[in-house]
Amino acid sequence: MEKIFVCSKNDLPEGEAIKVDCQPEAIAVFNIGGSFHAMNDKCSHGNASMSEGYIEEDGTVECPLHSALFCVKTGKPLCLPATDPIATHPVVVENDSIYVLLKEQQQ
């Protein structure tokens, strides 16, 4: 797995998200109650950035374009119009730095 640096823990306040530009797709990283979660940044229903979505205390994020709700832990869509999940990724915190673990691409 490839380990991608996101930011310092202090740079991602509770209830906020950050977009990480990486290949093959940008990643949205969320701080929900001091727990960090990552998913692909693009909504599975349309071309919207999930890091710009509305984050709820219950661990859901609302697409800013279509109002679909997703679980940030599983990527599962929780209401229409979205029906497909968004891929999620493991997050690790080391020495106050946040990293996302991505599967390495096949060459």
Results as ranks from 00 to 15, higher is better:
Gly75Arg: 06
Ala48Ile: 06
Ala48Phe: 06
Leu80His: 12
His66Arg: 01
Asn40Ile: 10
Gly53Phe: 03
Glu52Phe: 12
Met39Trp: 01
Ala38Phe: 02
Met39Tyr: 04
Lys73Phe: 14
Pro77Val: 06
Ala82Ser: 12
Ser51Gln: 01
Leu65Phe: 13
Ala48Pro: 08
Gly75Lys: 03
Ala38Leu: 10
Ala38Ile: 00
Ala82Trp: 10
Pro64Gln: 00
Pro77His: 05
Thr74Arg: 06
Cys63Trp: 07
Leu78Val: 05
Asn40Pro: 07
Ser67Val: 09
Tyr54Gly: 12
Ala48Gln: 12
Cys71Leu: 10
Glu56Ile: 10
Thr74Ala: 07
Ser35Cys: 12
Lys73Gly: 06
Ser49Gln: 13
Ser35Tyr: 15
Cys63Phe: 03
Gly59His: 03
Cys79Val: 02
Phe70Tyr: 07
Val72Pro: 00
Asp58Val: 02
His45Met: 03
Lys76Ile: 15
Ala48Asn: 10
Lys42Met: 15
Asp41Cys: 07
Asp41Met: 05
Asn47Pro: 10
Tyr54Val: 13
Lys76Thr: 15
Gly46His: 12
Leu80Arg: 13
Lys73His: 13
Pro81Ser: 07
Met50Ile: 04
Cys71Gln: 09
Cys71Thr: 10
Glu52Met: 12
Gly46Asn: 14
Lys42Asp: 11
Lys73Asp: 11
Glu52Ala: 15
Ala48Gly: 13
Leu78Tyr: 00
Pro77Lys: 08
Glu57Cys: 11
His66Asn: 09
Phe36Trp: 07
Asn47Leu: 14
Leu65Met: 11
Leu65Ala: 09
His37Asn: 12
Phe70Pro: 04
Phe36Ile: 00
Tyr54Thr: 13
Leu78Ala: 09
Cys71Asp: 15
Leu69Ile: 09
Ser67Met: 14
Gly53Tyr: 02
Ser44Asn: 05
Phe70Ser: 04
Met50Leu: 15
Met39Thr: 04
Thr60Cys: 00
Pro64Glu: 01
Tyr54Asn: 14
Asn40Trp: 11
Lys76Pro: 06
Lys42Thr: 15
Ala82Cys: 08
Ala48Thr: 08
Val72Glu: 00
Cys71Arg: 08
Gly75Asn: 05
Ile55Val: 08
Phe36Cys: 05
Ser35Val: 14
Ala68Met: 01
Pro81Ile: 01
Phe70Leu: 01
Cys71Lys: 14
Ser49Leu: 12
Asp41His: 07
Pro77Thr: 06
His66Trp: 04
Ala68Val: 02
Gly53Thr: 01
Thr74Tyr: 04
Val72His: 03
Cys63Ile: 03
Ser67Glu: 14
Met39Asp: 00
Pro81Gly: 10
Gly75Val: 02
Lys76Ser: 12
Val72Arg: 01
Ala68Cys: 05
Ser49Glu: 09
Ser67Pro: 02
Val72Lys: 09
Ser51Lys: 06
Leu65Glu: 11
Ser44Gly: 05
Lys73Arg: 14
Glu56Phe: 15
Pro81Met: 11
Glu62Gly: 08
Ala82Glu: 10
Met50Ala: 05
Ser51Val: 07
Asn47Thr: 12
Val72Leu: 02
Ser49Thr: 13
Phe36Ser: 04
Cys71His: 12
Ile55Met: 01
Glu57Pro: 13
Leu69Ser: 14
